[in-house]
């Protein structure tokens, strides 16, 4: 499983990245978590609002500052 946290340059994006790492750890996921700050990659994924959460190519959330609980709920849905 590949989890991407898209967005850089603001505090919200950093927050979501940290919360996602914590959520994945609590769920015991064997996932690769990466932060995407590259604009080209962003536009290719069709992301328009950041921070966004993308799992295996599917956009689960965009433009929301998710906390750990919310990330966990979203991840559990796609497990």
């Amino acid at each position: 499983m590949e989890i991407l946290v898209v967005g850089g340059g603001c505090a919200s994006c950093d927050t979501v990245y940290e919360e996602t790492r914590a959520a994945a750890a609590e769920l015991g996921l064997d996932a690769k978590i990466r932060k995407v700050e590259d604009l080209v990659e962003m536009v290719q994924m069709g992301i328009m609002t950041v921070p966004a959460l993308v799992v295996d190519g599917k956009v689960l959330s965009a433009g929301r500052t998710l906390n750990k609980k919310q990330v966990k709920a979203l991840l559990e849905k796609v497990l």
């Binding site: 967005g7 603001c10 962003m42 328009m48 609002t49 950041v50 433009g63």
Partner: peptide, 12 residues
């Protein structure tokens, strides 16, 4: 949108 989204929005 928050200001850090203005560029992704512009691109989108």
């Amino acid at each position: 949108f928050c200001s850090c989204s203005s560029i992704p929005l512009f691109m989108g």
